[in-house]
Amino acid sequence: MKKYLFFDPEKCSACGACQLACMDQNDVDASTGAQPFRFTFTQEGRGGDLHFYSVSCMHCADAPCVMGCPSGCLTKSEEGFTLYDTTRCIGCHSCAMACPYGIPSFGPDGKMVKCDACYERQKAGLVPACVKVCPTGALTLLTETELKERQQARQRSRSQTMLKEFAV
């Protein structure tokens, strides 16, 4: 069954809780210079508009990193997550160059690391660490049906807003 690590920017305030939860889960210690698997930031538009984001691996449906890896370390799970086993990783950074989001980073052993949507936790019936803590529900783990329902609900509410605006 397909699953989605879904991010709703309207609920995000870039508070960083998900990033710290991810670092805690994956033992990323900033004092060693290690890069987190998830980043949060506020983006300010030229017109003064503020946008809040939390970004990690997008788990692309047609993931360029999977294609780019010469050692076959990266695979797609049946749920759609981009997983990895770096036993044979040669540290060539091909995955990082293929990734349009610059997600893969490399540990002290030179091997690639990134978000795996806490796949082992999911197998144990737990949600990803970032989803677990997210204070406002901006990050959620959704099934395909839940995602569709959500998108439909959103379209309904948007059309209602537009109708109201036209009525005025």
Partner: peptide
């Protein structure tokens, strides 16, 4: 209710 904030996530370190 199961959630935790950016400050609370400091506890381990």
């Amino acid at each position: 209710e199961g959630r935790l904030c950016t400050k609370g996530l400091s506890n381990r370190q």
